[in-house]
Design a protein around this nucleic acid. Structure first.
Lengths: 128, 128
DNA sequence: CAATTGGTTAGCCATGAAGCTAACTATAAG
DNA sequence: CTTATAGTTAGCTTCATGGCTAACCAATTG
C-alpha cells in the first residue's frame, strides 16, 4: 500500500515530462523499438534511454530485448491506477459540492423567509 | 495549446509529490487556511509554502489572503484537464486493443479453417 | 572476418526541487 | 502599546533530473 503510493509518485513524475508523455501516447498505438521511439526526438540516444528507463521503473512501460533490438510496450495497469486516483478525488469533490449546494439552497430559503415571510412559498428553488 | 501542454507538465509534476497530493485530497473536502493545511505535516512552514506555491502555479489550487490568513481552495479545472488526458490515452489504447482482438480473431478463424476446413462454422467467436 | 547497426555504460555539467534556519511584515488580541 | 499569530522573504544545502559526449558491447549484414 505504501508501495502503491510510491508508485503513484513515480507515475505522475514520469508523466510530468512532455517527452515521456509523447512516448506513452505513441505506445498507446502499439509497441515499438527504442530506435523507432527515439526517432522523432532531437535528442541523443543515452538521454532518450533515460526516459525509457524512468517509464519502465514507474511501471508504465515494459520492454524486452531480442537480438539487439529492445521492444517497448505499454503496460496499462499503472495508467489505470493513476486514473483511479483522479476519479476518487473527483468523487469526493463532487460529494462535497452536493453538500455545499444543499447548504446554499437552505441558506437561500432561510434568507427568503427572513426577508419576506409572506413570499416564502413563491419560488421553491428555481434560480440557477 | 502549448500553454495547455505546459499546464499538464505542471499538474503532473505537482501531483508527483505525496505531500502535495495530500493537500489536494484535503482540499477536495473543502477550503482551508495555510496553517490548517500545514498542521498534519512535520515540515517547516516555508518548506510547506513552497508546496502551496507549486500547486498554485499549476492551477490546481487558488488562494486569497484576507487579514493575515490565506485561504486555499481547489480549482477543479486543472484536475479535470489531467483526468481528460488519461481518458484520451485509454480511448486510443482501447481502440487499438479492439483492432488487435479483431486481428487475433481473424487469425484464429483462419488457423481453424486451415486445420479443419470442415469445422469452420462451428464456433462463431465464443471464446474469451 | 570486417563493418554497421542498435543499444548500453560511464561520467560530466547545469538546472531545479525540496528541505532547512533566521529574520522580517503585518494583523489580531490583550 | 505589547505580544502573539500567520505568513513571507532571503539565503543556504543537498540531491535528483535532463541533457551531453565518448567509448563500448553485441548482433546483423556484406
Amino acid at each position: 500500500m505504501a508501495n502503491q503510493l510510491n508508485r503513484l509518485d513515480q507515475v505522475f513524475a514520469a508523466l510530468a515530462d512532455p517527452t515521456r508523455r509523447a512516448i506513452v501516447m505513441r505506445l498507446c498505438a502499439g509497441e515499438a523499438s527504442v530506435g523507432e521511439l527515439a526517432d522523432p526526438f532531437d535528442m541523443a540516444l543515452p538521454s532518450f534511454m533515460k526516459h525509457i528507463h524512468v517509464l519502465e521503473t514507474s511501471g508504465l512501460v515494459q520492454s524486452e530485448k531480442s537480438g539487439r533490438v529492445r521492444t517497448c510496450r505499454l503496460s496499462p495497469d499503472a495508467l489505470v491506477g493513476a486514473e483511479d486516483w483522479f476519479q476518487q478525488q473527483r468523487a469526493i469533490w463532487e460529494a462535497r459540492l452536493d453538500r455545499f449546494e444543499a447548504y446554499v439552497m437552505k441558506l437561500k430559503k432561510e434568507r427568503a423567509a427572513a426577508k419576506q415571510p409572506s413570499r416564502t412559498m413563491k419560488k421553491k428553488g428555481a434560480e440557477s
